[in-house]
């Protein structure tokens, strides 16, 4: 919840995991902010009619939540790159967890690499990615 310096970081360090708010109300708020007010994101019934198990979290919201993990851990972190792979749908109104871990450290550039994953309650990875982050 505060700023961090590169020297504070250790290879293999876990970022504190958080449970993202995947409630229908919050996903609808996000969808509205990004101009993606379609049933597959904001209406379980409409999503089911499209063959989905229920409303799903937009991919860009999952990615934004992964980025949020980094800033929640180090508020002063600058994400230079975040690369996200959407492996399976993230279902609205279901519990998920986001976690991250430091997997590379460039001492010269004060850059670190972080593995990021978003898992459902069954422990299945739905979204994964990596972030390149610079710290002072």
């Amino acid at each position: 919840m505060s700023g961090k310096a590169f020297s504070d970081i250790e290879f293999g360090e876990d970022l504190p995991a958080f449970k993202p708010d995947t409630s229908l109300a919050n996903v609808t708020k996000f969808a509205k902010a990004v101009g993606m007010m379609t049933g597959r994101f904001t209406d379980h019934e409409a999503a089911r009619k499209q063959g989905l198990p229920g409303a799903i979290v937009p991919g860009i919201m999952s990615q934004a939540m992964l980025a949020a993990l980094v800033h929640r851990w180090a508020q002063n972190a600058t994400i230079e790159k975040i690369d996200t792979i959407f492996r399976a749908p993230v279902l609205v109104d279901q519990e998920h967890a986001i976690s991250g871990v430091v997997t590379d450290m460039d001492e010269d550039e004060h850059r670190i690499e972080i593995d990021l994953t978003l898992e459902n309650a069954a422990g299945e990875t739905r979204v994964l990615g990596t972030a390149t982050v610079r710290l002072p």
Partner: peptide, 17 residues
């Protein structure tokens, strides 16, 4: 094409963990 890991980091990870 979809790999995001450097081999050196695999090695570091195995030893660190």
């Amino acid at each position: 094409d979809d790999g995001r890991a450097k081999v050196e980091n695999y090695c570091q990870w195995i030893r660190k963990k």
